Simulated assay, not measured.
Amino acid sequence: MTDQPPAITAPTPPAGATKRPKAPLGEIFLTFLIIGATSFGGGTFAYLHNSLVLKKNWLTEDDFLAALSVSEALPGLNAANMSIIVGDRLRGIPGAFIAFLGMTLPGALFILALAVIYASHHDNPWVEKALIGVGAASVGLLASIALQLGKKQFSHALDLVVIAVTVVMISFLHISLVWVLLTVGPVAYLLFRGHTKKSRGPHGHSVD
């Protein structure tokens, strides 16, 4: 009687590791296509949060905030950066490409059509009022997503200080975003280096 070879078992994932969610490429493309076709300006992140976190459950609040922070810090279109990050998380390089394509395709087609229309009607007061209305809607959407994420993530006094300094530097002192990132970024890292997730709850609340 010969000895049987030991059975090969799949390695057990380390404790606390999160399994990468699997989503069909077609669903990823359609989701980002709808977001790209129905969102406006900076309000895109409100649509991204609603679809990716609340509806699809592809990201947690912490995952979304981390992806948002990286996409804001990198050069290029923030929404495009976000689509690449999320697509790669869901399905690797193919997911990143499909998500980017879905996110940018509607805007590219719409802007071509709007450019032709605007070139011949840019003096029309109704066109100017419509653009003002779209801008106001974008501000409202940005405020909405800031409140949704802020009430869960920015519960520490130090968070509010960093936010206030950043707002003053950009909105009132009109300092370039590049210089703000190069100055506030390293300082924030040093300040928050000791504030690990051990001292915070699952949604970013302090448990001290």
Rank of each mutant, 00 (worst) to 15 (best):
L54Y: 06
I132V: 14
A37D: 03
F40D: 01
W179S: 13
P106Y: 02
T12C: 07
D62G: 02
A7L: 15
G150N: 04
A157E: 05
A188I: 03
R91D: 02
L149W: 07
P6D: 12
A188G: 12
P24E: 12
D159Y: 12
I93N: 04
K55W: 00
G95K: 02
V116S: 14
T12W: 04
A137L: 14
L33I: 04
G42I: 11
P94F: 05
G102K: 02
I117A: 14
L48T: 00
G204Q: 08
H121M: 08
R89E: 03
H205S: 14
A67C: 13
R200T: 10
F110R: 05
P5Q: 08
V180E: 05
S39E: 11
A80F: 05
P94R: 04
F154K: 11
F100M: 14
L112N: 01
R20D: 11
V180W: 00
G102E: 04
S120P: 04
A79I: 12
A113F: 04
P125I: 01
N50T: 10
D62F: 01
N57A: 12
L131H: 01
K197H: 11
G42L: 10
F100H: 00
G26N: 15
F97D: 03
A99D: 06
A46N: 15
S206C: 08
N78L: 04
A146M: 15
L68G: 05
N78V: 14
L25P: 05
A79M: 08
E27D: 12
V70D: 11
V168Q: 06
I111H: 03
H121Y: 13
S51P: 00
I170N: 13
I170C: 02
R91S: 07
L30F: 08
L191V: 13
V187M: 09
K197T: 08
F45V: 13
S176D: 15
P24M: 01
E72Y: 02
D159N: 15
L149N: 12
I34H: 05
I163E: 07
L158V: 11
N57D: 09
N78R: 05
G185I: 02
N50F: 15
F192Q: 06
V127L: 11
K129L: 15
A115F: 09
P125T: 05
L105E: 01
A137H: 09
R193T: 06
L48Q: 08
F45W: 11
A157M: 14
I132F: 14
E72G: 03
L142K: 07
G133M: 03
M169H: 06
P75C: 08
I175Q: 10
S71N: 05
V168S: 09
P5R: 04
F40L: 13
L59Q: 01
I145H: 01
A108N: 04
I84M: 12
M103L: 08
G194T: 15
G26L: 14
H205W: 09
R20W: 00
G16Y: 13
L90E: 04
I170F: 07
G95N: 02
A137I: 08
V184P: 09
D88S: 15
L182M: 14
L149A: 06
L52D: 04
P21L: 12
T2K: 11
F40S: 00
V180C: 09
